[in-house]
Design a protein around this nucleic acid. Structure first.
Lengths: 114, 114
DNA sequence: CTATTTTTGTTGCACCGCAACATATATGTT
DNA sequence: AACATATATGTTGCGGTGCAACAAAAATAG
């Protein structure tokens, strides 16, 4: 795929279909579950869509998704600083954080230039 | 409502129905759109659900949602520090941030005690 | 009082996500 | 080899999500 556009589950089904034979939704969801466990795919919660991960996810730093409102592309930015401030803010109210979802809408560098 | 549990759109329809008369989904969605513009209601993206905002949203600091995996309650924590680090991280890659979505799953203080 | 805009309601549908069950394939045991 | 058990894959079906497109009603204007 190699696109930076997140794909909805049913768009995926379209792309995976061969000569009119479409995989059942559940098949695609099971594949996505697997790939997400391996952190090869992320889910963009605010879009109900999925995107291949380009990162070496060596560090388990949470990933910040940068979603362009214009072209729809999704970039990733890992940031320990973001992770730290979030941990602090949540612990300050007695909350034990596990999996953060950080998705920022805005304009990507490419679209800003144009 | 005054609950700290986010409600799905169709749960809302259930609660708003009187003597079997249910508002149409679009009616509820339009109401929610309005309330979200006023920032009286937030959408929890990772849950496809909505929650009344308790805050005085005087500052337009982005809100961090703390979602308890156990009891489902959603707390809010405003943090300028989080906002700053996120702005920095995104600007570092030439991205102009607009509306951040920050949702953290974890265990709330109340459930941790139990 | 009619014309135009704005709001509200009706119908319908595409997408999302998975439960529950059925079938097949692999693995293990005697 | 023959059977039992476990794991993976496919089939059917359904309820929640979200909105487009159109219709009707209400407000505002001329």
């Amino acid at each position: 795929m190699a696109s930076h556009q997140p794909l909805g589950a049913y768009e995926l089904i379209d792309r995976l279909s061969v000569r009119g034979a479409r995989p059942a939704p559940i098949t695609v969801y099971r594949a996505l579950d697997f790939l997400r466990e391996q952190e090869l795919v992320h889910r963009i919660e605010s879009r109900n869509a999925f995107i291949a991960c380009v990162h070496n996810h060596e560090s388990s730093d949470p990933v910040v998704f940068l979603i362009c409102e214009k072209c729809g592309a999704v970039g990733e930015a890992a940031s320990a600083a973001v992770a730290d401030t979030i941990k602090n803010a949540s612990r300050a109210v007695g909350f034990v954080p596990k999996t953060p979802v950080i998705e920022i809408s805005g304009i990507c560098a490419h679209c800003k230039a144009a």
